[in-house]
Amino acid sequence: MEKIKITIVDDHVLFSRSLSFLIGSFKEFDVVGNYSNGKEFIQSFAKPDIMPDIVLLDLNMPIMDGVETMKWLKANQPGLKVIALSVNDDEGTIIKMITNGAKGYLLKDTHPKTLYEALLVTHNKGFYYSDMVSELLVNQLVNTGNKVTLKEREVEFIKLACTEKTYKEIASGMCLSPKTIDGYRENLFQKLEIKTRIGLVLYAIKNKIVAVEK
């Protein structure tokens, strides 16, 4: 059976080599590339040798970080499956990566068993978000079902929630008070059966409220 090809983009040499060794111990996978920053990685597409099936992309790198790299991949290699790697679980950062096309988000202290599962699930199903969001949210992203009827202002709020704006900035942009925005948020959480802003992003992606390359 042909192995699933993995590329690692991370500027920490020790971590990158350790990760390569770990992934090499999984019988289904093979590391086919290691790059120290996003620019070095995207330059490899000029003369592609082996196209990876999955990319593990560090967020904090010199020269070209993970977010900028993800934006380039969204525009130029939208079919490539990318799992973001980070040392933090900041909601805003997760939203940036998801809305730019990342198929997963893992913390760097993730257990090897979870990494194995994430790689396998991403290859087979196209995404892996269960480290950061509940199973309910993942189901909302991939399962079909009846759409909830949303008001125009609710759709506007959801679109803004998929950006880097804070709730206070969203309130200002919609010419509403922060208290009213809090009400929009809580009502949508209840209506859509979600618990976090990340849930709103996943709902928006699934229902094409915001455009994300697949």
Rank of each mutant, 00 (worst) to 15 (best):
K81T: 08
I205D: 01
I8T: 02
A84I: 15
I23C: 13
Y128T: 04
D131Q: 15
F29H: 09
Y203I: 08
Y184M: 06
P112N: 04
S18R: 06
I170E: 06
E40K: 14
E68C: 10
L107A: 06
L115C: 00
P62D: 07
E152W: 00
E152N: 15
Y129R: 07
W72K: 12
G173H: 08
A84T: 15
R153Y: 06
F26V: 09
P178L: 11
R185S: 15
N34V: 07
A171K: 13
K159C: 07
Q77K: 12
D30V: 14
V138F: 03
F127N: 10
L14N: 03
A75N: 13
I83F: 08
Y167M: 13
K151I: 07
E68N: 09
S25A: 06
E91M: 01
L160Q: 05
D109H: 14
F45E: 04
M70H: 03
D90Y: 13
S25D: 02
P112A: 03
L57G: 11
K147G: 09
N207E: 13
A84D: 14
L120G: 12
D89E: 08
E68P: 07
L73Q: 03
V82K: 10
D90L: 13
E186G: 02
F189W: 03
D11M: 14
G101A: 03
N139W: 11
T114S: 07
S134W: 01
R17E: 14
D49F: 07
R197W: 01
L59I: 15
K179S: 15
P62S: 10
C162R: 10
L80T: 10
Y35A: 05
I83E: 05
Q140H: 14
E117D: 01
A204T: 02
V55D: 11
I42H: 10
V13E: 13
N88L: 09
L59G: 02
L56S: 04
Y203W: 07
S86C: 03
V148L: 08
C162M: 09
K108L: 10
A118M: 09
Q77I: 05
I8F: 04
L59E: 12
E193N: 03
E117S: 00
V210H: 13
L107T: 14
M64L: 12
F157D: 01
D131K: 05
T7A: 12
E68L: 13
P178S: 12
F21Y: 07
D58P: 11
K3F: 07
T99G: 08
I194W: 11
D65V: 09
V67W: 09
E186P: 00
S20N: 14
V55Y: 00
S172C: 01
P62N: 02
E117P: 03
L176Y: 06
K103T: 10
G33V: 15
T144L: 14
V155M: 11
S18D: 10
D182L: 09
Q190V: 12
Y105N: 02
E135N: 10
I42M: 09
E164M: 02
L192T: 12
P62R: 09
L107I: 15
K39F: 12
L80C: 08
G92I: 04
R185G: 02
E40G: 02
Y35W: 05
K191I: 04
S134H: 03
L200I: 01
F127C: 07
S20T: 04
A171V: 13
N100D: 08
L73N: 06
V201Q: 00
P48Q: 14
E156P: 08
S130C: 09
T180I: 10
S44I: 11
M132Y: 07
E154F: 12
I181H: 05
K165I: 00
S130T: 13
D90G: 13
K5D: 05
